[in-house]
Design a protein around this nucleic acid. Sequence first.
DNA 1: CGTCGTCAAGAGCACTGCTCTCAAATGTTG
DNA 2: CAACATTTGAGAGCAGTGCTCTTGACGACG
Lengths: 251, 251
Amino acid sequence: MQHAEAMTPPGASTETIPSQRTPRERARARTIADIVRLGRTHLATDGAAALSLRAVARDLGVVSSAVYRYVANRDELLTLLLVDAYDELGDAVDAAVDAVPEDDFAGRFLELGRAVRKWALKEPARYGLLFGSPVPGYQAPAGQTTMPGTRVIFRLVGIINSAWRAGALAQEPGPAVVPSALSADLAAIRTELGLDVPDEVLANGALVWTSLFGAVSFEVFGQYGADTFSARDELFEHHLAVLAGVAGLRS
Amino acid sequence: MQHAEAMTPPGASTETIPSQRTPRERARARTIADIVRLGRTHLATDGAAALSLRAVARDLGVVSSAVYRYVANRDELLTLLLVDAYDELGDAVDAAVDAVPEDDFAGRFLELGRAVRKWALKEPARYGLLFGSPVPGYQAPAGQTTMPGTRVIFRLVGIINSAWRAGALAQEPGPAVVPSALSADLAAIRTELGLDVPDEVLANGALVWTSLFGAVSFEVFGQYGADTFSARDELFEHHLAVLAGVAGLRS
DNA sequence: CGTCGTCAAGAGCACTGCTCTCAAATGTTG
DNA sequence: CAACATTTGAGAGCAGTGCTCTTGACGACG
């Protein structure tokens, strides 16, 4: 929050990419991209807590203090990597969902879930940065991270909302009454995202959201024992099917 | 795994607590308990990655190298704190569940969920150590952590199994067929834990398990936006009610 | 062509985990 | 009670970390 303003000094930064007018800016952008690329590798290899600016500098073939010309501190590099990972996950989810016909709502949901799991298993450390325990002392600047960080949930509620509009949503009996305070929250979400679904569906959607990431996190973080589940694909498919039912998406 | 053997030097340690025969052992146990206590404070304050043996030594009023007389390394202290936290969570869950009549299966499940959430919100950093992204380079020794680490899930499937035995489990329609490989996993779990529930119920129980911790993790780790949900108690209660339905526990 | 801005390098501070040696305190035992 | 043995704490030291500051060089721009 406070960071967001501090990061846009008055008169500087055009928010959009500066299109690299001078060769200096070109070289600078290239170097920052290299730093992010190397940081991504270290992040994927050793995890977020072990991300070291000095190590990145070594790989860059430069002394440690030189990196500070391009990145203010370790937290800023972490933010860059956070956005980088959110975007990669968002792209993967978008591609998977878009490959399914628009009117196959259940199919789109299943592919969304599979895409999240697939990316998480491929990039466990980066997934951990996004959805694991927060890095101590690091607070993600909301201004830069909320947008890419909400792509998956936006996509999910978008699918549910489209199904609702198409009249393809099976209404579960479920606990009918939604308390007033929660109902106010849901109303705010509904207006902000331009949704039509009633409280019950929206609340269930939130549960499906957290449950999807709960299942993925358990698998990625090794919460299942080493040998408790060997058929993890099938377990996840079962979970997805049940969650589709909770969301009202019958295939 | 490998650690487990290295931690029981031949001829030493009786595995059970040595009951502190000599005053030396008494003093030693007291010091270790102090280290764990101080470590717990640091863990709760600054998170797992920021846990520092030197800081613990300072608080203990002793030079840094002295703590290595009691704890082999940082990872071993982390293991002690891991077990410590698992046990505290397990105790909290046990107390909450035991406060509900044995035949109120849905009520027991709800209290289990509430206890997990309550403890997690009270101890976010320690919860993060248990269920967040794994600490890089640290592998929990299974021999010491699996037992306390499985108390909650054992308790959960115990409730479901008791309800099944009592004929109080509402069978949901759900996706009927459970694939063969997953069925084999579930059979192994069933025999190991002495359960009677069919595949479908057990698989749904696994989903309820991961979903419960998914919902708690989202809240503890701040995955909900800062101001998206203000009525989080009610949201969680709604989730619990739906999950009780998934488990077949109708109240 | 000279000025000015940018950049890399190096030194340095405070912190971390961990190892080693040495001396003191402590408990055990003859 | 005194001698011994074990345990313990202190200190130095190594290698690593984030980060700051100063210095010198290089390149772009007026």
